[in-house]
Design a protein around this nucleic acid. Structure first.
Length: 574
RNA sequence: UGGGGCGUAGCCAAGCGGUAAGGCAACGGGUUUUGGUUCCGUCAUCCGAAGGUUCAAGUCCUUCCGCCCCAGCCA
């Protein structure tokens, strides 16, 4: 493995990756000196949507490879289809790649930067008799292409003189024809068993403004023509893409051979699928446009911006990408719980602890002085003193979690119940003396007593109090909006329910109606001052992230992920 | 159905002829002022199936089965 490049890929440091098939192949190329020991990858999104966690996998692979082999990685926008693309997307993509912790080599590249050169290559192909202008309509081209089992039929224009094609192509460029009138096609093999090789379209007419080249062009090159040449121009060594481009590799190679220019190696890997969500740009854009979510950065979205707003860290996402590995296993679907594990693991290490009550019930400590207020200085992280501490007020009236009290406690329940003693975290032991209900029979208040000797949360007599619950001083509590998220889809694979009646229904029918639940929580004062984006653990509940929608008067928190809850699991089994 | 790709545990995934890594999930237990964390332990006599080669096969050969991709003037 070569180290010591002139410009090592600036990329987030990670623990060393295992030897996956990509690294093995690159190591092999390095040994044989195939690319002079160079490693130069690229991440080539089309700016037609926001990046999602599937892109994160590709980003980690491409930038990670460059980092590990002392190479470089470009960012290149594959912007050959002006009607789908927008600067909004190029901006968000750059932001997301950087947020993930990677920096590309030099300036971002754009396929549109190569339009002139691409055009020149197209003319060369025509002059070499390897491309022709076709006058067949789109429908006719489809018919002439044949089927998977039947070979195609040559277009009547296939053997027209190069000079005629060249003239037509130049007039296409000059804007003499309307959209769809003519296309430039490669002359390959209409009988190829690989349908992609049956004279693929290279250029189409599109009288549309491009987000970068404006109205300079009215013909735009297709992916298969553009991508290989762009790779070649940039000196890419390993052009890594997803498995569905496997069929396209033959054309990738044909084109570079036909043009006789520098030839990178395309290698495919399996794209990421995640349970309970969708990783298709087309469907994600639909969720946004039809208002099923609040936007691309809705915390329920699997987009990088959604995950960021949700409170996920770039470290967690990179760790996830490293743990899922890279292989060619077609159609693999990673369990969402692995992502949650990575998020919890990182957040557990770096996040300060606070207390908030999501579903409050009032507690009055009858034997605690009416006007007394104590301010405890509590650690922000019980296992990492470097986080420091924060002041937490305590008084006679408190909020505790409704779920932390049971009038008729099940077996093994060791929280609050009539007559039972429980520890208020870092404060006192309290015992429930009386349960107050409203006319409807709902518990509205608990009257408790406390043991003054247990101040701080332990008693001199050393008696065991098994339950510890969190609390917030009612007099000091800050009402806070908390957004609780659940999977966007309940099924592992959205839409696949096992019910035959469900087949053919649109995927939006399967959106989890309870994927967002909003509650007003009672938070300790410290939380009200957390800046947007601030991450914190609400003790015993989960990890939360301050949302930009919040104001000083009404903070807003997103639940990133819950803590594991082995009691809930136990109770389910009882 | 033509071509291409892929099948190792519930989910990812190592394995490259010498006797099935690791992670997630799950399950059991210890520690614990978060039923969190952490720690210990369990979890494939078997690698899509069947034959064959070999002293030895997840790895080689044959046949079969299943899933995915390709018939855009999308990428």
């Amino acid at each position: 493995m070569s180290q010591q490049p002139e410009t090592p890929c600036a990329a987030a440091q990670e623990r060393p990756q295992g030897q996956d098939f990509l690294r093995a192949r690159i190591a092999q190329d390095n040994e044989s000196g195939r690319f002079g020991g160079r490693v130069h990858t690229r991440f080539p999104p089309e700016p037609n949507g926001y990046l999602h966690i599937g892109h994160a996998k590709s980003i980690c692979i491409n930038f990670g490879l460059a980092r590990d082999f002392g190479g470089k990685c470009n960012l290149r926008f594959d912007d050959t289809n002006p009607v789908k693309e927008d600067v909004e997307y190029v901006d968000s993509i750059q932001q997301d790649v950087r947020w993930l912790g990677f920096e590309w080599e030099g300036e971002p590249h754009y396929a549109s930067d190569y339009f002139d050169r691409l055009y020149a290559y197209a003319e060369k192909l025509i002059m070499d008799g390897k491309a022709y202008v076709d006058e067949l309509s789109a429908e006719e081209i489809r018919e002439y292409r044949g089927t998977l089992t039947r070979p195609g039929t040559p277009s009547p224009w296939r053997e027209r003189p190069a000079s005629e094609s060249l003239d037509l192509f130049r007039r296409m460029k000059a804007g003499e024809f309307p959209d769809g009138k003519l296309v430039l096609r490669a002359k390959i093999d209409m009988a190829s068993p690989n349908v992609i090789m049956r004279d693929p379209t290279l250029y189409r007419i599109r009288h549309a403004d491009h987000h970068r080249t404006g109205d300079k062009w009215c013909i735009y090159p297709m992916y298969d023509f553009t991508h290989c040449i762009s790779d070649s121009i940039e000196g890419i060594t390993h052009s890594i893409c997803t498995l569905e481009f496997d069929n396209n590799r033959e054309l990738y190679d044909w084109m570079l051979d036909a043009l006789d220019i520098y030839h990178p190696q395309q290698i495919e890997f399996a794209r990421l699928n995640l349970t309970h969500t969708l990783l298709s740009k087309r469907k994600l854009i639909q969720l946004v446009r039809e208002g099923h979510v609040r936007g691309w950065d809705d915390p329920r979205m699997p987009t990088i911006s959604g995950l960021r707003r949700r409170g996920c860290t770039p470290e967690a996402i990179r760790d996830f990408c490293s743990r899922i590995g890279v292989a060619r296993t077609a159609d693999s679907t990673v369990d969402y719980s692995l992502l949650e594990f990575c998020v919890r693991e990182h957040l557990n290490a770096v996040t300060p602890r606070c207390m908030a009550v999501l579903d409050p019930i009032r507690v009055v400590i009858e034997d605690y002085p009416e006007d007394k207020v104590e301010v405890f200085d509590l650690p922000l992280h019980p296992e990492d003193a470097s986080h420091g501490s924060r002041p937490v007020p305590f008084c006679r009236e408190l909020w505790i979690e409704r779920d932390d009290f049971r009038e008729n406690p099940p077996k093994k329940y060791y929280r609050l119940a009539p007559g039972a003693e429980v520890r208020l975290r870092y404060a006192y032991y309290i015992t429930c003396r009386e349960v107050i209900k409203d006319e409807a029979g709902n518990v509205v208040e608990l009257r408790c007593s406390h043991d003054p000797a247990s101040r701080g949360g332990s008693s001199p007599d050393g008696r065991r109090v098994k339950g510890t619950i969190h609390w917030v001083s009612a007099r000091h509590a800050r009402p806070t909006e908390v957004r609780l998220y659940d999977h966007l889809f309940l099924q592992d694979v959205p839409g696949v329910t096992g019910n035959p009646d469900d087949e053919g229904r649109p995927f939006t029918d399967f959106i989890n109606p309870d994927s967002l639940k909003i509650v007003t929580a009672m938070a300790e004062p410290y939380l009200a001052d957390l800046p947007a984006g601030g991450r914190v653990q609400f003790e015993r509940l989960g990890y939360f992230c301050s949302d930009p929608d919040g104001t000083p008067e009404k903070p807003v928190f997103n639940r990133t992920v819950t803590l594991k809850d082995s009691w809930a699991k136990l109770e389910r089994k009882l």
